[in-house]
Design a protein around this nucleic acid. Sequence first.
DNA 1: GCCTACATGTAAATAGTTACATGATTGA
DNA 2: TCAATCATGTAACTATTTACATGTAGGC
Lengths: 204, 204
Amino acid sequence: MRSRSTTLETAILGLLADSPLHGYELRKRLNLLLGSFRALSYGSLYPCLKSLAARGLIEGQESPDLPPHALTAKRSRIVYHLTADGKEYLQSELSTSGPAAWEDENFDVRFALFGLTDVETRIQILEGRRSRLTERLELARESSRGSSRRLDEYTSELQRHGLEQVEREVRWLDSLITIERDRRRARSTGRDEDRPGTDVKEQG
Amino acid sequence: MRSRSTTLETAILGLLADSPLHGYELRKRLNLLLGSFRALSYGSLYPCLKSLAARGLIEGQESPDLPPHALTAKRSRIVYHLTADGKEYLQSELSTSGPAAWEDENFDVRFALFGLTDVETRIQILEGRRSRLTERLELARESSRGSSRRLDEYTSELQRHGLEQVEREVRWLDSLITIERDRRRARSTGRDEDRPGTDVKEQG
DNA sequence: GCCTACATGTAAATAGTTACATGATTGA
DNA sequence: TCAATCATGTAACTATTTACATGTAGGC
């Protein structure tokens, strides 16, 4: 119970907001969610679930219903669902748009949960992320100019490639920002509801 | 002295192979080397230097020479240089090309030190890295096909973007592999020396 | 006088992974 | 019967950052 990563906690709460799940299944979804590689181990997942349960944000109950074709119950699995406190906490987390939301460690998870986030917050996070990346590009170019000794062939190729990847991500963000701004506009000219998220996810 | 990351150690030894440096300066170079962002803190650097010194791979001495315009010595700085053991160790590290060399944590450092690595090893690392990435692409595509429930709009966009970045890196590796194969060919048809690296870095 | 950069270092906190321990179920 | 997948969990280890502690030197 020593780790208290908001990243992992938010990801778990976000998935549980969709449907109740047990640890094993949760892990698979999490690995799918977070870029499909970057495996998360049980050693971090289960302690985190315990911690969330201890704080009353989720509740677990040993699965009562047997799977369709099973004769006896499998190894008892603990299905977790969000409590009212948990829902409230998740919504308050998802409505923040400070620097924490667009740093490397958190951005992916926050983006993956955009379906539960309102348009205004989505735009703020995307713009924050964008300025974070352009700031990096500035620093990198500045330090490569200011550096007295010029770099080794391979080192400079590594840097060039790194910068290119970041530039590409900035363009990706630009296209996303455009889309979200259009959505905001469409929303304000149409119905003027402002409930978070509910009308954003799934339209096909 | 509790951390023994080969990544950081190799990076330090690689930089010291070029010229002796003190910790403060070493950190700046390290941050330049490793993609120009991803700052490394003193809290990991200094303990690592101590550990390397304790194992006899590097040696530190309080700077004897004053900077040109100084009246008194600045706060004593400790300039580290590679020992004979350190050089040997570094060369043995740089001649390995196993999976460890192409995993995420190590690849960048190994690539940045290609100037001290021989052609054959360079090619093996690049090819290993390439197959590691294509393996990931396979897994990701497979799991997205096999997944029963289709993904949320934002989640699938995140995945699409992630896959695109990896695909791009594969093409980058392809071009590097081509270059290195040409070099190997040029080398074998020309002079047939096989000393590692010395004739690869700096030709302008 | 104060802020920035230089310079070295330690202790505690953070965020995980790996290896271990246990055991049921399913299919070849 | 043997391996793979399902399922939960703990202890030890790895690697790192953050905050602290200390002090010098140069510019405004």
